[in-house]
Amino acid sequence: MKLNLCQVDAFTSTLFKGNPAAVVPLEKWIDDALMQQLAMENNLAETVFFVPSEKEGADFDIRWFTPEVEINLCGHATLASAFVLYTQLGFTRPSIVFNSKSGLLTVEKNGFNYEMDFPSWKPERITDYPDGIAEILGVKEVVGAYKYRDLLIEVATEEEVLNAKPDFTALKKTGEMLILTAKGKSVDFVSRFFAPSAGIDEDPVTGSAHSQLIPFWSEKLDKKRMTAKQLSKRGGDLVCEQKSAERVMMGGECVFYMKGEFEI
């Protein structure tokens, strides 16, 4: 069996920046275990698979795998999938609707930008979070802790986010996927994302984290339209909008890196 794949850098206009995703178009689903093995072999934050959908209102069904687990939502690989469909596979309609484990996800092409309609996951403040989390993250002080899917830790400055040096072994023991965030200087907010429990010490740019960051910062800054930067080594830039209590928009550019073929 031969399968095609493309590798795309998402949430960036510069090659070798943003978040790389392996995109594998399928005509029909292959075995779950095989998809997980392919994701492990690719060893990227996500390998994404999609097939033509039979669901009313959807164009494709989509699934995302880290090297260790299947996850329920991934922004950068969805962005990369839309980019591949438009630039490599001849898709021409103004928007693409993906059916996923997190519901329907719409991606619209707007010039060089791809804008995704995603669920809004507003995190709520918590007081019960792992002991010593500031020391585990290598930050001075926790301003606030919040939770939706992931643990969101707010710190005082952009510099603290940038200079954090997590102890990934200790963080993995907490079982948490963690968002570190602060108000930005040249952008509205900045973040980093750590998920050693899912096989990713640090994810370069994380769309699903922004499903939580956008409602968090929209309320905090009293703004609907915002800009964001993820301060990983590769870095990434996003435009964001709180569209309603239920939906957010996040968008950015993509850069094509390579295409190839699996032979299994």
Rank of each mutant, 00 (worst) to 15 (best):
Leu221Glu: 06
Phe11His: 04
Ile96Tyr: 02
Asn163Lys: 13
Val69Tyr: 02
Asp131Pro: 12
Lys220Val: 08
Lys2Thr: 12
Ser102His: 11
Thr14Tyr: 11
Asn19Leu: 02
Glu241Ser: 11
Pro123Arg: 04
Glu202Gly: 05
Gly199Ile: 01
Glu46Ile: 03
Leu238Ser: 02
Gly90Glu: 11
Glu219Thr: 11
Pro196Arg: 11
Lys101Val: 01
Leu151Lys: 15
Lys109Ile: 13
Gly252Glu: 07
Ser218Trp: 08
Ser13Ala: 14
Lys109Ala: 15
Glu141Arg: 14
Pro196His: 09
Met250His: 04
Ala198Glu: 11
Glu241Asn: 11
Ser13Cys: 04
Phe98Glu: 04
Ser13His: 09
Asn163Val: 10
Ala156Ser: 15
Tyr86Val: 02
Arg63Lys: 05
Met249His: 10
Ala10Ser: 06
Asp117Ala: 13
Gly199Lys: 06
Glu246Asn: 15
Ser102Pro: 14
Ala245Ile: 09
Gly251His: 11
Cys6Tyr: 15
Phe49His: 00
Phe65Ile: 00
Ile136Asp: 11
Lys101Arg: 14
Val187Pro: 01
Ala33Pro: 00
Leu3Val: 05
Phe189Val: 12
Lys17Ser: 13
Gly175Phe: 13
Ser191Ala: 14
Ser81Val: 10
Ala82Leu: 01
Arg149Tyr: 09
Ala195Gly: 12
Gly75Glu: 04
Gly236Asp: 04
His76Pro: 04
Arg247Pro: 03
Gly207Asn: 08
Leu180Asn: 03
Ser208Asp: 08
Glu68Pro: 07
Thr169Ala: 15
Ala164Thr: 01
Glu115Phe: 07
Thr12Arg: 05
Lys17Asn: 11
Ile179Asn: 08
Ser95Thr: 11
Asp203Arg: 05
Leu26Gly: 07
Phe49Cys: 01
Ser244Lys: 13
Gly138Met: 09
Val8Cys: 12
Gly235Leu: 08
Pro25Tyr: 03
Ala134Lys: 07
Ala182Ile: 12
Ile214Val: 12
Glu246Cys: 14
Phe262Val: 13
Arg149His: 14
Thr174Leu: 03
Leu171Trp: 01
Thr169Leu: 14
Asp31Glu: 12
Val161Ile: 05
Val155His: 06
Gly236Trp: 02
Leu3Asn: 06
Glu261Leu: 15
Lys224His: 15
Gly18Gln: 05
Gly235Cys: 09
Phe216Arg: 05
Asp117Met: 10
Ser13Met: 08
Pro25Thr: 09
Val97Leu: 13
Ile214Pro: 03
Thr181Glu: 08
Lys55Thr: 15
Pro166Thr: 07
His76Gly: 08
Asp167Gly: 03
Tyr114Arg: 04
Leu89Phe: 06
Leu89Ala: 01
Glu263Tyr: 15
Phe16Asn: 10
Ser208His: 06
Phe98Met: 02
Ser208Pro: 03
Ile133Cys: 01
Met40Asn: 14
Thr78Phe: 10
Val143Cys: 10
Glu261Cys: 15
Asp188Trp: 01
Asp59Cys: 09
Ser102Thr: 14
Asp222His: 09
Trp64Phe: 07
Asn19Ile: 00
Leu85Arg: 01
Glu56Leu: 15
Cys240Asp: 08
Lys147Arg: 15
Ser197Met: 12
Ala209Leu: 02
Gly90Val: 12
Gly184Glu: 02
Leu105Gly: 09
Leu221Phe: 03
Ala82Trp: 02
Leu26Thr: 06
Thr14Gly: 12
Phe189Asn: 07
Ile126Ser: 06
Leu213Arg: 04
Ile133Lys: 06
Phe262His: 07
Thr92Gly: 06
Lys259Val: 07
Leu44Gln: 00
Pro119Ile: 09
His210Cys: 11
Ser120His: 11
Asp117Trp: 11
